[in-house]
Amino acid sequence: MSRIEISHLTKTFGKTKALTDVSLEFESGHIYGLLGRNGAGKTTLLNLITGRLFPDSGEITVDGEPVLENDRALSKIYCMTEGSKYPDRMRVVDALSWSAEFYPNFGGKYARSLCKKFDLNEFQKIGGLSTGYTSIFKLIIALACGSEFVLLDEPVLGLDANHRELFYRELIENFSSSQRCFILSTHLIEEAATLIDRIIIVKNGTILLNEDAQDILESGCTVSGPADLVDRYVQGKKLIGSDKLGGLKSAYLMEPCTHVPDGLTVGTLDLQKLFIQLTNA
């Protein structure tokens, strides 16, 4: 069991506060969804975890060791980000061999089998890959890196529906057999919703929510029906938001719906709705 511990992390860029007093834990055996609107501080957090940025204050440790300028701690973390660090003229197959040099647990055979599944030509130069295939190339390295913690920042950017589906399947299969920790930072909440088992919502540089995904979604509900009936029902209840379409209203509650009167329909609370309601305004 490996663990990343983040305590009282603060990071500013000039006058902008990117993160304020963030404390979090990540453990192996979980897939975390790191969610937040544009500019919430997700990428800053990932860059701090991987030691690419220095915090103003606070500390990050991996299995008790601080990450800053500590190769042993950092070798347990792999972070896939938007940019690519590989030279454009390098071929995919050579990049895979190089990765094996940097990551002692790199699965070379597994990486090549993934290239086949995604129809990625191993002999193509990295600079010549399309947007989608650049993402696929980076995803393959992330899946095969063998690190205890795999951080994925917008992993499916530019991937078509078929490749996204294939990636999600490979992710689940990889997770099932390795029990390593995956941290998914994404805007495609609906697609990630069923994959993750922990939800972390970042808003304006602070942690708004950090919960077990099943627990939180099951503890909430949606009631829909005529607006006046819905309004009467939700009075005094933990309302997080609502939508209206003419005289029809849906209300999102952070508590189970009990004793619902006739004329109202009850449904589950979905992650996208929860996210939008909590991060609006």
Binding site: I31, E165, Y168, I172, S176, I196, Q214
Partner: peptide
């Protein structure tokens, strides 16, 4: 198996297990 079910439906293995 739990893995087969979770891969097939693209859901977290903990959900399949539940």
């Amino acid at each position: 198996s739990t893995t087969e079910i979770s891969v097939n439906y693209k859901i977290n293995p903990a959900t399949a297990l539940k």
